[in-house]
């Protein structure tokens, strides 16, 4: 059971949250200009790294706000939590 720090509410148990998959995937502005492959890439393709992963969470049973987190998928250690309007932190390890 992960311990997740909501940027608005503080540390809470995982069961209050819902997972939102990989973060920082912007919806393409000009969808008509995309080939089918490019659209499919946006729609379905996600990285699956062992290690640093930028991802989205929503405090579903709390403030209901979305935020971003950086998690090491090998250890489940969280390396950062930040609001949607904050800059993506560069984390190397």
């Amino acid at each position: 059971m992960l311990l997740i720090t909501c940027p608005y509410c503080g540390p809470r148990s995982e069961e209050e949250f819902a997972y939102g998959g990989e973060g920082h995937i912007a919806r393409p502005a000009d969808t008509d200009g995309l080939s089918d492959d490019e659209w499919a890439d946006y729609l379905f393709m996600r990285t699956n790294p062992k290690g640093v992963h930028y991802e989205r969470w929503v405090h579903a049973h709390g403030c209901r706000r979305w935020f971003n987190a950086v998690r090491d998928t090998a250890t489940n250690e969280f390396l950062a939590f930040y609001r949607v309007d904050e800059k993506k932190p560069e984390i190397d390890r």
């Binding site: 819902a18 939102g20 979305w66 949607v84």
Partner: peptide
């Protein structure tokens, strides 16, 4: 509701 909130908060704030 969750769908609407997700788009409002993450894509069209």
């Amino acid at each position: 509701l969750a769908w609407l909130e997700e788009w409002l908060q993450t894509e069209w704030p």
